[in-house]
Structures are given as C-alpha cells and as structure tokens.
C-alpha cells in the first residue's frame, strides 16, 4: 500500500513539475546527445582541431584565473562588508549583486569601452604599457565582473555566522593576527570559498555576452569556446557546433565534478538536511 500523503496536491504538483522540466529542459538537452550520437568520426574530430583546442584552453584558463581573482577579492569584500561597518555599507552590499542583474551584453560593451585603448581605464593602463581589451586579460576582467557575486554571496553568510569568540580565544592563546587568520578563520571559510570559486568558475566557462565585446575574438588567441560554437552556427555548420559544444560540455562537467568531489564532506555536512519526524525529546 502506497503511503497516503497528508497534504493535498502531491501528485498534481510533482506531475506538472516533471512534465514541464521534461519539455523545457530535458527534451532539448537530450537532443544534444541524440545529435552527437549521429555525428561521424570526421565531424567529431573537428572538435579537436587546433583552433578548437586553443578555444577550450583559453576558456578554461581565463575562467580559472578570474575565479581565483574572485576568490581573493570576494573574500576581501565579504570580510569588509561583514566586519567593518562603514557609512553606505548597505548600498555597497546591494551593488554587489549588479552582475546578477545587469544583462551580459550591457556589461560586455561597457567593459570593452572602458578598457579599450581610448577608454577611461584602458588609456591609463596603456600609459603603463598594459593592454587589456582584445587580450586574454580582457576576458579575465569580464569574467571577474560576472563571477564576483558568487564568491561574496557564498562567503558572506558563513562569515556572519562565524563566532568572533573563536578569534578572541585564539588571540588570548597568544596567536598573532595572521596566525589567527590562517589557522582559525580560513579553515572555517574554506568550504564556502571553494563553493564560491566553483560557481564563479562554472559561470565563467560558459559566459558569452560579457566576453565577446572585450575579447577581440582572434582565432587561436582570444576566441573563447562559446564563441567558436556561435561562429560555427553562423556558418551553418551545426554538426561542428554540436561537436565543439559536446566536447566543451564534457570537459567542463568533469572539471566541475572534480571540484565538487574536492568540496566533499565539508559542503555535505553544511547542507541542511531534514530529519524524519519523530517524537520530540
């Protein structure tokens, strides 16, 4: 006998959920696998052409670099927002979500305009001999913009929950400020930091809109993988686009899966879990 549910609407809501997810998400996604299965070896091999390999490398490298930069900067921002109240803090806190809310195309053209050689920032950097727009550095800048909130928003709540007494205790035991930071704080923050890093990295891998305007899009040099897919589609090379998309998806999924494994126990322990109902003590 199937257990009867107490609250009504289980069948209806679950049925609609599965139906909708199936139609909107799973059918399209399985089409990718279906199409890929129908590709010939030659068509698949195109996904390993030097131009494609360069694109994967660039996408992975820049996303990694930006995520790393964000891990540092995001930790700093979260720390300052939580621990150092200053006038206008709430405004700054709200601003952190801007990359979530601002359409990527807008971010893309704005960053390109700012960092090009006659832009506000680009001109000053050019005077120092540093070229950002139309180089991989530009891609890192765009991905840093896009990924920043992920790190701040995962680290911030953990930092808020953290008991300052542990730090005081470390101080009272004779630890220096840097010892306290590295031995007491950082271990507590590491799972959240890694989660934020992974989220920013994942977002950076697939990012398109904010990058293409600042990247320059030179094949083999500043052409990211999503753009290569786009270019193949514009040339009506659907098979080639599918092959590149598949290889790129598999590569990023396995990387992200590895990172998830790395997060391992810490993240799982932190995840809220609902216990089965029982008599209260």
């Amino acid at each position: 006998m199937a257990a009867r549910r107490v609250l009504p609407g289980f069948g209806l809501s679950l049925g609609l959920t599965v139906l909708y997810l199936g139609l909107v998400v799973l059918v399209p996604l399985s089409t990718l696998a279906l199409t890929a299965a129908g590709l010939s070896w030659d068509q698949l091999w195109a996904a390993a052409a030097p131009r494609a390999l360069a694109a994967y490398r660039l996408s992975l490298g820049c996303a990694f670099g930006a995520a790393l930069l964000n891990a540092g900067a995001g930790l700093l921002v979260a720390w300052v927002l939580v621990r150092y109240p200053f006038p206008g803090r709430r405004l700054v806190d709200a601003l952190v979500d801007l990359p979530f809310a601002l359409p990527t195309a807008v971010a893309g053209i704005t960053l390109a305009a700012l960092y090009s050689e006659n832009g506000w920032v680009g001109a000053r950097l050019a005077a120092l001999g540093l070229k950002v727009a139309y180089t991989p550095l530009g891609i890192v800048v765009a991905l840093t913009f896009v990924g920043l909130p992920f790190v701040v928003r995962t680290v911030q709540p953990v930092l808020e929950e953290l008991d300052p007494e542990a730090e005081d205790a470390a101080c009272s035991l004779g630890a220096t400020r840097s010892q306290t930071f590295f031995k007491v704080l950082l271990p507590e923050l590491r799972p959240a930091l890694l989660t934020g890093f992974t989220l920013a990295f994942a977002r950076g891998l697939g990012e398109y809109g904010s990058v293409i305007f600042i990247a320059g899009n030179m094949p083999l040099k500043t052409e990211i993988a999503p753009l290569l897919i786009m270019i193949k589609l514009e040339q009506y090379d659907v098979a080639g686009a599918t092959a590149v998309a598949l290889v790129f998806l598999l590569a990023s999924f396995s990387l992200l899966f590895g990172l998830h494994l790395l997060q391992g126990r810490g993240a799982r322990a932190a995840a809220p879990r609902r216990l089965p109902r029982e008599d209260a003590a």
């Binding site: 107490v6 109902r277 029982e278 008599d279 209260a280």
Partner: peptide, 21 residues
C-alpha cells in the same frame, strides 16, 4: 512515553496526519 516511543506518531495517525502501514 519516552522519546522514540511512538506517542506522537500515534497521535498523528489518529488525526490522519500520518497514514498507518
């Protein structure tokens, strides 16, 4: 009963908030 004795479950079964096996 002590905790874990099933008393709340019994009450919920009587109420219809849990279905007995």
């Amino acid at each position: 009963g002590p905790s874990g004795s099933g008393k709340t479950t019994l009450l919920r079964v009587i109420a219809g908030l849990a279905a007995p096996d």
